[in-house]
Write a protein that binds this DNA or RNA. Structure first.
Lengths: 169, 169
DNA sequence: AGAAAGTAGCTTAGCGCTAAGCAACTTTCC
DNA sequence: GGAAAGTTGCTTAGCGCTAAGCTACTTTCT
C-alpha cells in the first residue's frame, strides 16, 4: 500500500459516508474519483465562465473562437467542422455563430464551390479578442492548479489521460 | 523527476499541440488537467445517463431520489433542502419534483407546522427504484475506473480531493 | 443521360435550467 | 402589541441546447 496521508474530508467524503450508513453493501470507490471529477468540472466551468464574461462572451462562444484560432491562417472553418470539433449539434452552432457574427467577431460567407456550404472566418476584432481571452482563461486554470506542486500536477495529468483514453476510446 | 512513462496521445494532447504551433508563448499545463477533467465528466455523464434511462429517469431525477434515500428514514426532505444539497435553484427542483411525482416515485405533502412549507417523501416504488438504480450507476463507474489499478485509483482520488478542496473552498 | 435515393448542410420547434416574481412566516423596533 | 422589513418557500417567464424538418448537392442504377 502506498502512503496515503490523511486528508481533511470534502463533500464527496460526506456523501460516501451517508451511503455507508444506509447501504453498507454498496462499493462506492468509483464515486471517490468520478464524484470529484464532476464537481471539479462544474467549479472550474464557473470560474472560466467569469473570466470570459469580462470579454462579453460565453464559454461556448469562446470555444468557437478558440477553435478557429487554433486552426491557423486564414482562420476559416465550416459550421460543420466547428460543430464536429466541439461535439455540438449544428443547431447549437447556428445560435453561437449568430451571436458572434452580430458582435463582429466572425464573418459568414458562402462557399464558392458548394452552394450549400458556408465559410466562417475570424475577423481582426475576433482574433484580437480570442488572443487576449485565452490567456486570461488559462491564468484562472493555472491559479487553481497551483494547489498541487508540479510533480503532483504531472502525475494527475497522466492518470487522467489514462482514464480518459479508456473511457472515450 | 518521478517516472512518467510515455503514453499514447489523447485528444487533449492534440489540442495542446495545436496551440503550441500558433501560440508557442502560452503555458498550457493547466489544460492537461482541466481539459481532461471536463471531458471525463462529459463522457461519464453520458454513460451514467444511459444507465438510469433503463429505469425511465434522468440523471438529475436520480439525484433527487438518491438524496432522499441517503437521508434515511422516513425518506422525507423539503424542496428547499433538496435544492440546496443539489446546488440547484428552486425552479429547477419544481420541475423535477413534478415529473417524479407524476411517475409515482415520490409524494408531496403539506408541512403541518409551516403553511408555506412542503414535505417530499419517497414512495415505496421510488425507494425500490433508487435502490436498484444506484447499483447499476455505480457499476458503470466502477467499470470505467477499472482502467486503473486500485493503487492508481486511490492516488487519483487523493489528488482530486486536494484540488477540489482548494477549488471549492 | 436522367431520375431516384441518399447524404450533407443549415434554420426552426420542444425541453431543462437559471433568473425574476409572488405568498407566507418571522423578527425587530418603537 | 403592532407594523414594517427581512427571510424563506414555491410557481411562472427568458435562454441555450438537442431533436425534427427542409433544401441542395451527389451518386448510382438503368
Amino acid at each position: 500500500m502506498s502512503e496515503r496521508p490523511e486528508q481533511r474530508k470534502d463533500p464527496v467524503d460526506a456523501i460516501i459516508e451517508q451511503w455507508a450508513k444506509v447501504r453498507p453493501d454498496l462499493d462506492t470507490t468509483a464515486m471517490e474519483v468520478f464524484g470529484r471529477v464532476n464537481r471539479l468540472s462544474i467549479a472550474m466551468a464557473d470560474r472560466v465562465t467569469k473570466a470570459y464574461a469580462a470579454f462579453g462572451i460565453s464559454r461556448g462562444e469562446f470555444d468557437v473562437l478558440a477553435t478557429l484560432r487554433r486552426s491557423g491562417e486564414p482562420y476559416t472553418l465550416s459550421p460543420r467542422q466547428l460543430s464536429a470539433t466541439l461535439m455540438l449539434t449544428t443547431g447549437g452552432m447556428t445560435g453561437r455563430l449568430d451571436k458572434l457574427e452580430r458582435a463582429g467577431l466572425l464573418r459568414r460567407s458562402p462557399d464558392p464551390h458548394d452552394r450549400r456550404g458556408l465559410h466562417v472566418t475570424l475577423t481582426d476584432k475576433g482574433l484580437a479578442l480570442v488572443d487576449e481571452a485565452v490567456g486570461v482563461g488559462l491564468a484562472a486554470q493555472t491559479e487553481a492548479l497551483s494547489a498541487l506542486d508540479p510533480e503532483q500536477a504531472g502525475h494527475l495529468a497522466d492518470l487522467l489521460r489514462k482514464l480518459l483514453r479508456s473511457t472515450e476510446g
